[in-house]
């Protein structure tokens, strides 16, 4: 399985990361190494095997529909990179012309 620039661009877009030219060259190389490495798993036949998804034995873990308020508005906004007294603020999504 070969990782090329087109795939890296798509992945970078999905994971919201930017790479400079040289960084991109490096990540293409690294990803190829990593994908080659994990391709080894193809050697193991898995017919009839169910995927292991949950690591605990319990099911139906639920909570009651009871209110438990633990933080205030001020606390909620405390770590915001930008906020006013009531809202988180983010630069607008640019409308594409």
């Amino acid at each position: 399985m070969k990782v090329d620039k087109q795939l890296v661009d798509k992945l970078a877009n999905l994971s919201k990361l930017n790479f400079t030219e040289s960084e991109e060259q490096e990540i293409i190389k690294d990803l190829n190494k990593m994908v080659d490495f994990v391709d080894k798993l193809k050697e193991i036949p898995v017919d009839g095997v169910e995927p292991l998804i949950y690591m605990i034995d319990e099911t139906n873990v639920m909570r009651e529909d009871e209110v438990k308020m633990e933080i205030t508005k001020e606390e909620a906004l405390k770590n915001a990179p930008l906020a006013d007294s009531d809202y988180f603020k983010v630069p607008k999504v640019l409308k594409k012309k």
Partner: peptide, 24 residues
């Protein structure tokens, strides 16, 4: 129309001052 959120215990009611019906 539950009292609390789908996956946490903060209030789910409509309205309320902004960012007051929240939890971590």
């Amino acid at each position: 129309l539950t009292k609390t959120k789908a996956y946490s215990g903060d209030i789910a009611a409509y309205g309320g001052e902004a960012n007051t019906h929240v939890s971590v």
